[in-house]
Structures are given as structure tokens and as C-alpha cells.
Amino acid sequence: MATEESEDHGHFLPAVRDWPRGYGEASWWPFVTAIGLLVVYTGASLYVIGRGTDLVSSSVGLGAFVAGWAVTILGMFGWIYQAFVVDFWDRGSHNGGASLRLGMLLFLGTDIATFGAGFAYYFFIRTGGWHTEYLPESGILTSVLVINTVLLVFSSFTIHWAEGHLQKGNHQRFVQGLLVTLLCGIVFIGGQIYEYYEFIVHEGFTLTSGVFASGFFGLTGIHGIHVSFGALLLAILLVRGLRGHYDADRHVSVTTVSWYWHFVDAIWLFLVAVVYIGSVFGTEFSPF
């Protein structure tokens, strides 16, 4: 995008093919996205008001919450589509994707802090007066946990494998690798839902079951949201890959998404070690 005009800031045009069309520095998508978020948070507010008072029914809030997410996702989709996807092969690469790669690294930095706050809570209670009655009755280490962990680690290898084949110019292997990675991610999410189901319905171990439950559902929940978001990103990569995007030289989003995926995998391993194993280590539940 660095054109011969780039000396003059007034004529730099970051949004040529955008909505509204025909301008260079105008896009509705950011505004749409922000409106979506406003509706999401207003919906959440209405939900809370609905629960606390009889001014509105909290289902109105839930409806707005869901509708808001739909608008937000529409806005983000429009933004990413018109900024990066629509003329992928014509637009050339802006500073070799350096900004985008750095942007992902910085985002992952913020994510370390986000998870850090949750882990801080968990360490706080784990090192305090710790009771095994905080844990679900039949224990926290299940076969689902083992399968999920294996799947997620395996998927880190498959996305690496896919990226490697892309760099060697083998587009078909790349797409296959992405597909396998995505499937692993989806099965992982399914496993997580099954684990929650078992805990909540059969064990009565819910969000309100005490101090460990708060940390457990908080941390695995935010991780699950990250995996789901990662699966969405992988799905976008896959669709774009099937449409012929990416080659050995142009694959910034493949790189950034794979970083994200490795990061989520690493967080999971830490989580398994600290929250699952760490919660029973040294107690009568410990299998070790």
C-alpha cells in the first residue's frame, strides 16, 4: 500500500474498496462494530436490570445481547473482508505484514495478562486454606481431560505441518492440515461441553459451588472462549485456503492464527498442570 503518494498523509488511502465506496478514508464497519458492542453491553445491562427490578423483562436483555453480537460479528466480518480478503492477490503486501504480526504478538501479550488475573485468583485460594471438598465428588481428572489435551497438542503440530507445506508450495497439504487442526479444535470444544455437562448435571458441581468452582469455570471458560474464537479463525483460513488464497510468500494471517493457536495450546497445558493436576496434587484425591 506504500504508494508514491505516501509522502503526503492527506492522500494516503487505507480504505479504497470499502463501504461507502468511492472514498479512500471512510468505512462504516468500525462504526457498525462499535454499535454492535454497544448493543451487547446494553443488552447485558438490561438483563441485569431485568433481574434486579421489574422495569424490563430480562429476556429483552438477552435478546439484545445476542443481536448485538450478531451486529458486532457482521461489522468485523465486513471490516476484515473489505480490508484484507476481497482483493487479496491485487492489493500487495503492506510492509510484509510486519504490523499485523506485531499486532498479534501484542494481543497475545494482553491475553497473558487476562489469564494472569484468573490464575492469580486461583493461586490465591490454592495457597490459602485449601479444602478438597471444593472439588467435584468423583474427582477432576477424567478421561475427557486426557483426550482433550492430546487433541489440542496434536493440533498444534498439524497447524505447524500445514504452514510448513504452504511454505514449500504444497497448497493441498496445507488445506488438509488446516482441516485436521480445525476438526481437533471442534472436538476439543465438544469434549469441554461434555465435561461441563457431566460436572453440572451429574455431579452438581456448578459455577456457584464454591471458591474452586469460581476459578475452575472462570479459567476453563475463558480458555474455551479462546478455543472457540480460534476455531472461527481457522474456519476463515480454511475457506480462504479453499478459495485459493495464500502461497509461500503471502500468508501473514496463517502465521498469526497459528501463533494464536499455539498460545491457546500452551495456556491449556499450563491450565491442566496448575488447575486440574495442581488442585488434587498433595491431597487424598491425588493419583500420584
Binding site: V48, A113, A213, G215
Partner: peptide
Amino acid sequence: LFAFPILTAAVTMLLLDRNFGTMFFAGEGG
């Protein structure tokens, strides 16, 4: 980069405590 997500996460926990019965900042918890 490292400060604001902590605040956002802490506010999330506070909202969960207020509305969904978690115990992040209850006496027995944090």
C-alpha cells in the same frame, strides 16, 4: 498492554460475583 487486561478481568470477576454467585472476592475466596 499488561495493566488494562488485569482490570478488565477483575471487573469481569466482580460482575460474576454480583450477578452469578461466584466467590472470587467473597470472604472465603480471594
